[in-house]
């Protein structure tokens, strides 16, 4: 329990309500699934651009861009993590 570790989860967005919602979904999903991850919130537009993202909110898990320009659904967020977390 609680010892599954996923690498880095980056939530990209300049701090708008939609980005906040996305961050909340990510944190809730990780908590529910009991997966530990390094969640980073990236707010600086320059940093966001350097990651190759134009549409926020966006989520990057271990260098994979899984969603951009929309708030993902909670079920979808959970699936990203269960698919990637070590079994």
């Amino acid at each position: 329990m609680g010892n599954k570790v996923l690498g880095v989860v980056k939530v990209l967005g300049p701090g708008c309500p939609r980005c906040q919602e996305t961050k909340r979904l990510v944190i809730n999903a990780l908590a529910e699934l009991q997966i530990a991850a390094d969640v980073q919130e990236i707010k600086d537009p320059k940093e966001i651009a350097k990651l190759g993202v134009m549409f926020t909110p966006a989520v990057i898990i271990n260098n994979q861009l899984v969603s951009q320009g929309r708030v993902p659904r909670y079920e979808e967020v959970k699936k990203w993590f269960t698919d990637r977390a070590p079994k």
Binding site: L12, P14, C16, K46, A49, G52, V53, F55, T56
Partner: peptide, 16 residues
């Protein structure tokens, strides 16, 4: 776009 999506878009195009 609201200003909130505009700035990342601007930066994104610039760096793309």
């Amino acid at each position: 776009v609201c200003s909130c999506t505009m700035v990342p878009l601007f930066a994104g195009v610039l760096y793309s």
